[in-house]
Design a protein around this nucleic acid. Structure first.
Lengths: 205, 205
DNA sequence: CAACATCCCTGACATTTGTCACGGTCGCCT
DNA sequence: AGGCGACCGTGACAAATGTCAGGGATGTTG
């Protein structure tokens, strides 16, 4: 072990969880939490200011999600490795996080003792990925939805009518219905709502 | 201060969060985490075995949610106060938690430093409630949905067709449509999916 | 260039959905 | 008993939804 601790940045929107994770990591003598933020758009600034070795970022956050924060961080502070933590083990999340430059991906179901070890491995340049989730990602494959289909389905999440969607996405109603139909077919569902649910579970939105 | 620490039981389905909360509370000299469980139906058994003073239970859990666990706990181990912790500040959650016998209700957005203090207050017999959420609960009021309407709406969450719902709830299709129509009216929405969303946001399901 | 694939868009069609008016049963309360 | 409210069911109608065949624009590949 070296004598300089690993500097960690913490990004999670739930203050209680954030503080608890800080307490957990502070128990390890070789780890030091140097910054905590609660929004995706505060990550880069905090990283610039404090120069952490590893950033622990949640996916679900206001102000730009953790994936966007990961990409921005990899671009702005290349020396900082990113370990993504998330509540939901969505296959698409893992894929997109890795493509955005993350070094590791951990779900919040993993035992607490393993977190510090994951941080150390990431800092050492290794990749940390939940094995079962990796398998799921392989079978699930990339999102089959086209750009517009994704837009429309994302707009359909709050359950509005076709007219509402058309207004939001600036398309004709008929076109919206077509995209929805395509999405329903590709997700193997029978309803718009079901298509939304499936796409969300796979992290395609 | 007395010399015997407050004994705390921790119930949260996410192992990482559970462990982190344990680490956070263990920093306080007057608190001692005596049990950790990850399912709602393990709470009572663990409480019987370890006899905690305060139980910290999450609402979202497999094996019966935190509300049910709270009710069971108040019945089986009356000496143990319950502090409910949740990700979502749904007004209905607060109301039902209180009616089930909880002594406190905290959302995961609250600063980490306040958690230990909340545990102490609950242990002292005081009530701890997020003020803004309490206000929301008052204006939102009790769920206007009847029992069957709730059933149907709950079954409609995964986006199936009316025929699917009818099969699940053992009702005729026309009746299902009627209940859905009533729920749509009561929630002030224009779509079944929207009604589901609103009812879920208010904790009515 | 021609063939091809992909995406976006439109309009017409059958099905599903949401609404309404109505009758009937059951349990509860005055 | 009578009134009341919640629940279940029916039938019918208008509106929204999902499906289909096809046209146009674009980029890619042989």
């Amino acid at each position: 072990m070296t004598d300089t601790p690993i500097r960690v940045l913490l990004a999670d929107d739930q203050a209680l969880v954030r503080g608890a994770l800080a307490a957990l990591l502070s128990l390890e003598p070789d780890l030091e939490v140097v910054a905590e933020v609660g929004r995706g758009d505060e990550v880069v600034e905090a990283a610039r200011r404090t120069g952490p070795d590893v950033a622990l970022v949640d996916v679900e956050m206001p102000g730009g999600d953790g994936i966007a924060a990961t990409a921005a961080l990899a671009d702005a502070v290349p020396g900082c490795r990113v370990l993504v933590v998330t509540t939901f083990g969505r296959p698409g999340y893992l894929r997109r996080a890795m493509e955005a430059g993350a070094s590791g991906f951990v779900v919040k179901d993993t035992p607490a003792r393993q977190l510090a070890e994951a941080v150390r491995r990431v800092h050492a340049g290794l990749r940390v990925v939940d094995p079962s989730l990796a398998a799921e990602t392989l079978v699930a494959g990339r999102s089959p939805l086209t750009a517009r289909e994704t837009d429309v389905l994302r707009a359909a999440r709050d359950g509005g009518t076709v007219a509402d969607l058309a207004a939001v996405v600036h398309l004709s109603e008929g076109t919206v219905r077509n995209h929805l139909s395509a999405a329903i077919g590709k997700t193997g569902s029978r309803t718009r709502a079901e298509a939304v649910r499936i796409a969300e579970q796979n992290g395609w939105l």
